[in-house]
Design a protein around this nucleic acid. Sequence first.
DNA 1: ACACTGATAGACT
DNA 2: GTCTATCAGTGTC
Length: 202
Amino acid sequence: MSTEQEIFSPLPLDFYDQPTLQLAPALLGCLLVKETSEGTASGIIVETEAYKGPFDQAAHSFKSRRTKRTEIMFGTSGSTYTYVMHTHCLMNVVSGGVDVPEAVLIRAVEPYSGLSLIHSRRPKAKNERQLTNGPGKLCKALGISMEDYGHRLDQPPLWIASGPDRDKFVTKAGPRVGIDNTGEAKFYPWRFWIQDNRFVSR
DNA sequence: ACACTGATAGACT
DNA sequence: GTCTATCAGTGTC
């Protein structure tokens, strides 16, 4: 059993120096923590998706498209890539190292701490599952926004820690979600989740 | 199952 | 300047 301090202690930046397809499943079971003036909330990462820039038609950085939005993906691993879609914000972890525009999308978490804060931020959730079982929902629940764009994930106010009870789950892989019209890329099994966890988005 | 929402970037004229 | 698509979520049919 880990101590409270170990559970919440930020992972070092070099943790993100591993191949994106290895990092995505490695993030499962880790704790995503956000500190705000309202308090601190956290959730265990239970679902991720890998996006491999230049060769991945589903990625914003396909063919190394370098723009204001994708710029952070060309930077160092372990930075935050936030992106606004419709009315919601989605969070990605930059990987691949400098000049390799890859990232891992955090698709779902299981609420771990700051439950009352999470509930107050997600008044429309009709049950516990709906608090954080989607990429836009978890950002709202934890208070993650465009202000976190470019933030390094080894320090407050936003970081990822090793989390409790590591390795006590089975990892599954399958096709990614919400990426129609992307040809072959649609079928790559680059989505990873914790088997039987009820907060997985689908 | 379906449509409405509506921020922002990127492509195009 | 204008048009369109987007790594969703929600309410309604």
